[in-house]
Design a protein around this nucleic acid. Structure first.
Lengths: 191, 191
DNA sequence: GTCTATATGAAGATAGAC
DNA sequence: GTCTATCTTCATATAGAC
């Protein structure tokens, strides 16, 4: 039982360090050697914890969604109005500016990569979007009950994804600031 | 001389068929075997026309930009007002809906893929954006000379890239229609 | 110029010693 | 459970016959 705990602990360690690796290299360029090195675990050992690379991805997505849920719960608790909560979401690219300009959006780049030929994996990666969209929809419903909250949520996602792609392509931090400000103005205009 | 022409002809044939392949598979999953098969040229022969995969990419980008320039010149000639020209640009994802929902935006997905670790290649791929942005800026300058045309051009690019990413992730054609309409409304509101 | 055969390396994955 | 050695496959790339 103690050993099962240890197994789970190492598994979590692999997931955590590989999460960042996946973000920085993308799925197809991320090798098992990379994973082993990042997690500081002997190469062959990874296969004891994950049978395939696909399983590693699934575990990372699960981990990411858990983190996201914690963050969203925290926002629900600490941020009082739906408008401020939506603004907080829009500010993610701003707070993650260095990463976004260097590696793009972790969700968007992964979905774009997997969406071309690796459909099953993309469907797993997409759950990250689902999680945000569900929460955004709830916020928009509170903000403007008469408008279509689902479409507003998607539109907000479109904006953040678009700015991430272009900011990443040009490593342009000014663009992030300008576009986030623009989103905030749009959100305020809805009330 | 006739043989040099023939060489150039086959080279063009490889570029043209590989252009589509690059779009559908992405750069890193596109192999020389794929290229040879798509171009209907024996596998080893590709190396006679292109020394490396990077060279193939550079040639495809050059080809794409040539095509883009022709298209933009055509729009300049046949579409009379800057507003209509800008709308025409915004409608590209609409006219390419099947492709966009299945493979994403050809420019955006390539930049996102290469931007993580393949900087030099991404700088080449980015020229596609540059070409559009230059043209868009000109149109915005005509449309609203008092506003910052460069920022408006980038904002329009952000919108189209964002809708492409999300539409691709969800294979959602309704989203394309709705977001393109939204962009058109925004463009009209500028005048 | 055209094509086949092959070199070389790295990937994902497995077998089996400890 | 841990780790090494290795299998297999497929990638880029090249050598050299025709």
């Amino acid at each position: 039982m103690a050993s099962r705990e240890k197994t789970e602990q190492i598994r979590q360690q692999i997931i955590k360090s590989t999460d960042d690796l996946l973000y920085r290299k993308g799925f197809n360029l991320m090798s098992f050697s990379d994973i082993a090195e990042a997690a500081n675990v002997p190469r062959g050992n990874i296969y004891y914890y994950f049978k395939t690379k696909d399983e590693v991805l699934a575990a990372i997505i699960e981990y990411r969604i858990e983190q996201m849920q914690n963050m969203l719960n925290d926002w629900d608790k600490t941020i009082k109005t739906p408008l401020e909560r939506l603004k907080r979401f829009a500010q993610v690219p701003l707070k993650e500016m260095d990463n976004v300009t260097q590696y793009g959006c972790p969700m968007g780049t992964l979905n774009a990569e997997l969406g071309k030929t690796q459909y099953e994996l993309q469907h797993i990666a997409r759950i990250q979007y689902d999680t945000f969209l569900k929460w955004l929809k709830k916020q928009f419903n509170e903000l403007t009950p008469d408008k279509n909250a689902g479409n507003l949520a998607l539109h907000l996602l479109v904006q953040t994804q678009g700015l991430s792609v272009v900011a990443h392509s040009y490593a342009d931090k000014t663009l992030v600031r300008r576009e986030v400000k623009n989103i905030e103005n749009w959100l305020e205009s809805l009330v």
